[in-house]
């Protein structure tokens, strides 16, 4: 018996040198079971954690600007999280103080406007997908009016609108993009109303949107208007659902977690992955998308994969200001932080 005990003791000795399994925390605004942004984020990160071998602790339904976020951060750190994802736009501004007090914890935020040494802005180059979606919309429209229901004119939304518009112009220079603001990420009634106005007042025959819910596709489907989905694989729609801009969040999260484990996130301001890494793509084409359209889109995609810069060459905004001269390219930093304009060809539905 004693002999067995001795041998077991010797054999178990190794375990003491093994580092403990790392943990990360994930804080999100909505319910992680809710389809759209919340579910896609949660599924992405949980899959990535499973692959990489990290334990995931989740705090969902955490309200912005309510003090719930800093409290959740403290809880997660107390439970041993080495990295925390702040997965809603306003979290980083609210939690900035507590983030700076925890230099040993890596933070990641999807807002590029707040910077601290231990916080990395994490984004996908979704605008590349928007560019391809715009190219599809430009080819599909007959009225040359494309409707865009958007939440608020922040850098991310503007970047999407601009890339979409540049895509439209790449296939149909005559087409215009009409944007209707809702003022909120989740406002189904307003979204429905805006979509109806875009169809009925502006005469849009293709719609897209930047919202967390699916009020716009529902309205478009009901109105018999083409639409392009965003961020979620839409199901139960007709061929009017031309395609969707999707993001492989699991791929993105796997990459950033790998960098976290390798200790490469120190003082990394932005971590952007794009179409070249297969994180972003336009997919689920409906029969209404012709083979010609598809090959054109594939061509444009190839250019992007091979480092074609969307925001390069001469670009004016819709007020006539030159935003990028010929031979120049808008840098990533500017794209992330300072897009407060819409490109020429964008009309705002008042």
């Amino acid at each position: 018996m004693l002999l067995i005990a001795i041998i077991v003791t010797i054999l178990q000795f190794e375990a003491t040198l093994e580092p403990p399994r790392p943990k990360i925390g994930f804080i999100i605004l909505g319910d992680i079971t809710q389809p759209g942004w919340n579910a896609s984020q949660y599924q992405g990160i949980s899959e990535a954690c499973r692959d990489v071998g990290i334990e995931l602790l989740v705090r969902d339904k955490v309200q912005e600007n309510s003090g719930q976020c800093p409290a959740a951060i403290q809880e997660l750190v107390a439970q041993g999280c080495g990295m925390i994802f702040l997965c809603s736009y306003a979290y980083s501004a609210e939690a900035r103080g507590i983030v700076e007090k925890m230099p040993h914890i890596a933070f990641a935020t999807n807002s590029a406007e707040v910077h601290t040494r231990n916080m990395t802005a994490y984004f996908v180059r979704m605008y590349q997908g928007r560019y391809l979606a715009g190219a599809l919309a430009g080819m599909r429209t007959k009225s040359n009016v494309i409707g865009y229901v958007a939440a608020i004119p922040n850098t991310e939304v503007n970047r999407g609108i601009n890339a979409f518009t540049l895509g439209v112009q790449a296939t149909n220079p005559a087409a215009k993009v009409v944007v209707a603001w809702t003022g909120a990420w989740e406002a189904p009634e307003k979204e429905t109303a805006n979509a109806k106005r875009l169809i009925n007042e502006a005469g849009a025959d293709v719609l897209t949107y930047h919202q967390d819910d699916q009020a716009v596709p529902d309205t478009a489907e009901a109105a018999g208007v083409y639409f392009i989905g965003y961020n979620t694989t839409l199901r139960g729609y007709s061929e009017r659902n031309l395609a969707s801009v999707l993001c492989r969040w699991d791929v993105y999260y796997r990459d950033i977690l790998q960098r976290f484990l390798k200790g490469e996130l120190n003082s990394v301001k932005n971590h952007w992955l794009g179409i070249d890494r297969g994180v972003v793509f336009l997919t689920d084409f409906s029969p209404a998308v012709t083979p010609h359209m598809r090959s054109r889109i594939a061509e444009l995609r190839e250019q992007l994969v091979h480092n074609k810069l969307i925001f390069s060459g001469q670009i004016h905004d819709n007020k006539g200001t030159l935003r990028c001269a010929a031979g120049e390219a808008i840098s990533d930093d500017t794209l992330l932080e300072k897009i407060d304009w819409q490109v020429e060809g964008v009309k705002i539905l008042e």
Partner: peptide, 11 residues
């Protein structure tokens, strides 16, 4: 290294 011209990369 990029050389900027304002917020844009010029060369």
């Amino acid at each position: 290294v990029p050389i900027y011209n304002g917020g844009n990369v010029s060369s």
